[in-house]
Amino acid sequence: MLEEKIEALTEEIAGLREDLAKLPASGEKAPAKKAPAKKKAPAKKKAPEPEHDKDEVTAKIKEVATTIDKPAAREIIQSFDCADLADLLTHPEHYDAAYTAAEAALEAGEGEDEDEEEL
């Protein structure tokens, strides 16, 4: 009878050792239960590529600075909450609007020159 209990306990210990071997070593994470499959989130819509590139915007802003004056160019840049031209060029989403604003300033500046010549 004692031998039967020893044999039963030995088998139980062997089973526990097998279970223990399946567990991760200390410091490792236990294998997580498989979570239900999650639906993929819809892809974020990427902002459309600007029509004007960095070089075109730079040239147009510099043209405003030389044709009209530097404060006019600075005003365009700051209207996009940017400290300077380099800061503006890190925001491609502003390229088209900045280019358009610079063109408008140049057209307005040309109109003022024509008015001054008529006087």
Rank of each mutant, 00 (worst) to 15 (best):
H52Q: 03
A98P: 04
L2S: 05
A14Q: 13
T66G: 13
P36R: 15
E49W: 05
K44L: 13
F80Q: 03
R17M: 14
P92V: 06
D53Q: 01
I13K: 12
V57F: 06
P31H: 15
A102P: 04
A104Y: 12
A37F: 08
E51P: 00
I13Q: 13
E118Q: 06
D53S: 00
D96R: 01
L16D: 11
A32C: 05
A98D: 06
D115G: 05
I6F: 11
I68H: 10
E12C: 12
K44C: 12
T100Q: 08
A41R: 07
E116C: 07
K54E: 09
Y99M: 00
L88D: 09
A47I: 11
T67V: 15
K45Y: 04
S79Y: 07
K62S: 12
K45H: 08
K62P: 02
I76L: 03
R74V: 04
Y99T: 06
V64R: 08
Y95G: 04
I68A: 13
E28T: 06
E112M: 12
K70S: 05
D69V: 04
V64T: 06
E112L: 10
K40V: 10
P50C: 09
A104V: 08
P24V: 08
S79H: 09
E51T: 10
A30I: 13
A86E: 03
E117W: 02
F80K: 04
I6L: 13
E18P: 03
T67P: 13
A97E: 02
P24Q: 09
P71A: 14
C82Q: 11
D115E: 10
V57C: 00
K70H: 00
E107W: 10
E107K: 13
G111Q: 07
L89E: 11
A83L: 02
A41C: 12
A104H: 03
E118L: 06
A73C: 05
A108H: 14
K60I: 02
K38W: 12
L2A: 04
E110L: 10
K45V: 07
P71E: 10
K22D: 12
D87I: 03
D81L: 09
D81Q: 13
E7D: 14
A104R: 11
L106I: 03
D113I: 15
P48H: 08
A97V: 00
P36Y: 10
K45G: 05
E18G: 14
L106R: 13
E63Y: 03
R17W: 08
G27V: 07
F80T: 06
A83C: 08
E28F: 02
D84T: 00
H91L: 00
A8E: 09
K46Q: 11
G109S: 15
D19H: 14
I6W: 12
I6S: 04
L23P: 04
I68W: 11
T58G: 15
L106K: 13
S26E: 03
A97R: 00
K29D: 12
R74Q: 09
P31K: 15
E28I: 04
E118K: 07
A108D: 14
P42C: 00
D69S: 01
